[in-house]
């Protein structure tokens, strides 16, 4: 067990070395059909969302793979299970078709907690989304856990 904890501590140090690491900004040209498809997948019935006139409040999730994925979170950890743990979102203005957005992701934090069934390693990354003139559109902070 002591040896296991040493492995986990080493992994944590490796994660903490990532804090502050950024991804190159990703440009998103928002299309009406992207919004429609997303709204449909969420079972939305609000007419403006269904028509793709405005994005539902969780649409930001669909920008994460490109904006925040690409290896920002470390997946090669000595723990078998992996889950999404938290999302914290601020929405500054609605997203609409024709918007050109810029997403900038950053590795924000890594920490260890003792769970009921053993150690849990958390990683947090955030993405700030701006519009074409540099005004804030959204900020999303996602935490994942390996255990």
């Amino acid at each position: 067990m002591a040896q296991d904890m040493a492995v986990i501590e080493t992994a944590l140090q490796r994660l903490r070395a990532r804090i502050g690491m950024t991804r190159p900004p990703v440009r998103f040209a928002i299309d009406r059909s992207d919004i429609r498809r997303y709204a449909q997948a969420c079972g939305e019935i609000w007419p403006a969302y269904v028509a793709g006139d405005e994005a539902p409040p969780t649409f930001i999730a669909s920008l994460q793979d490109e904006g925040m994925g690409n290896g920002l979170f470390a997946m090669d950890l000595p723990l078998a299970k992996f889950l999404h743990s938290d999302d914290a979102v601020e929405l500054f203005q609605p997203i609409r078709p024709g918007d050109v957005l810029l997403g900038q992701a950053r590795y924000a934090d890594a920490f260890l907690r003792a769970g009921r069934n053993g150690p849990m390693l958390f990683q947090t990354a955030e993405m700030l989304v701006m519009d074409a003139v540099g005004d804030k559109v959204a900020r999303v902070e996602t935490t994942v856990v390996s255990f």
Binding site: Y38, A41, C42, S62, L63, Q64
Partner: peptide
């Protein structure tokens, strides 16, 4: 459907 729409693979 959600995986596709949200680009979550």
């Amino acid at each position: 459907r959600y995986c596709g729409a949200a680009n979550d693979l």
